[in-house]
Design a binder for these strands. Structure first.
Lengths: 244, 244
DNA sequence: CGCTGCGTTGAGACTACTCAATATCCGTGG
DNA sequence: CCACGGATATTGAGTAGTCTCAACGCAGCG
């Protein structure tokens, strides 16, 4: 049995979502993990086209998923913070359609698919909760897609709102401030804009008094303004308790 | 027990994916549908924020999912063709984070969540297959996100490739031709570009000899060229048998 | 102390946008 | 059968947003 506060928090999150969770089910959830491993920063932990036999629960550090195009362009399609299952979808899907890498040093709990299979076989209810968690990822994908209708400024504002809310629920942000391990270049690859324009957009956000990014720290100066700019509505994140 | 060739095809698709499917499981799959209903074209069948008690399997016609922004902008986040479960994710998620509407007249099989719950409770294996099907939707979302790194022309080419391959596997496209119920305005909302630019991009595709869109019909003039332009790789669609 | 990666600024170019006008298609009613 | 209206498609012209290239500052690190 693996122990880590990140696993406890992950289970607590399930309990928040479903208060009827039995202690047997809690034990079953805990049983899917075989081991805790560590990765350095800027390190690929899963490659596109990999045939997967285990999934990764992020315990500490930030990770991301990306799709690389032939000529060096790459799109970051998801950002993950502690408490996120970065590639649970690889359990039913088996083959990766993108890569997963770290922004910072990360600690990760491994969930062998054999164990996941056993739990989902014996606990249909937990199976639905796992399913749910991958569907929230998909809901986030859709919000990012909606960014196609937003300007670069609005997209940046939206992503900062999303990150703040998600980090706050796992205790990694408060007082409208959080530590930001991403570089502006990486932020650019998430927003689908150039690094240069990213820098200018961040300056605009600061000039508007909405948010500032300095020394790897994000400070949301005016939540109302930032959220309004982004038309941010956190319901898609399915968080409990619902914030703000 | 509801009968419709679209349901048969949907089950056949599951069988192709997993040849070990038993006749009991096949019966169970069939049992989730309660009724077949019809919708006119350009009709919302599910609204954002709806609390769902049933899901919709598309049997005939095209549908799409979209997120509307406050000021009239809207992003189409998914396009669905016959054989697709347009909102299966609403079973675990319960509340919609976007809307679903039709491009053309549609026939749809209803799957009450009560039935889905029963089948997933008794057939963990089928549960995983349902899960899989929502994960393929998510994989498509990710490819669309990767479009953020592509030019408008490349995005258009990619979407045409995707639509052709998906339609071909359900017998609605052949000889590099298919009927296109979408307007260019709707296509624009899927590509995140303006309708005017969409028109110009389509002209460019035609001038390149890659594809033509005329009279609600798409004709792929040079698959190699179109796929190369789009860097199209169909593996993310998880189709069986794998095409091309 | 020099290297390297990141952030910042400026200038010019290009992609895609808006607005506006015209053309075409299609369904409807006369 | 034709006239009409409305939606869709197409074209042109000027503009806004974002990009590329290039330079420079700064910090961290070997």
């Amino acid at each position: 049995m693996i122990e880590h506060p990140g696993i406890d928090r992950w289970i607590a999150n399930f309990q928040a979502r479903d208060p009827t969770l039995s202690s047997d089910e809690e034990r079953a959830l805990r049983s899917v993990f075989s081991e805790v491993v560590e990765f350095g920063d800027d390190h690929d932990i899963v490659h596109m086209h990999d045939r997967m036999t285990q999934s990764h629960l992020l315990l500490e550090g930030w990770a991301f998923r990306y799709i690389a195009l032939g000529d060096g362009r790459r799109q970051i399609v998801a950002i993950h913070v502690p408490g996120d299952f970065v590639d649970l979808h690889s359990f039913p899907l088996q083959v990766m359609d993108h890569s997963v890498a770290t922004f910072s040093r990360c600690r990760v709990a491994l969930a062998p698919h054999r164990q996941l299979r056993e739990v989902t076989q014996t606990h249909p209810h937990l199976s639905r909760l796992f399913w749910l968690s991958t569907l929230i990822d998909a809901a986030v994908h859709r919000q990012w897609l909606a960014g196609g209708q937003r300007s670069a400024l609005e997209r940046a504002a939206h992503l900062l709102c999303e990150l703040y809310v998600r980090l706050e629920t796992v205790g990694l942000a408060k007082d409208f401030t959080f530590a930001m391990p991403m570089s502006q270049i990486e932020f650019a690859d998430a927003l689908s804009i150039s690094p240069v324009h990213t820098n200018r957009v961040l300056q605009a956000l600061r000039n508007e008094g909405a948010a500032s990014w300095q020394q790897r720290e994000i400070r949301i100066l005016d939540w109302q303004r930032l959220a309004a700019l982004a038309e941010f509505d956190p319901t898609y994140l399915n968080l409990f308790p619902s914030p703000r």
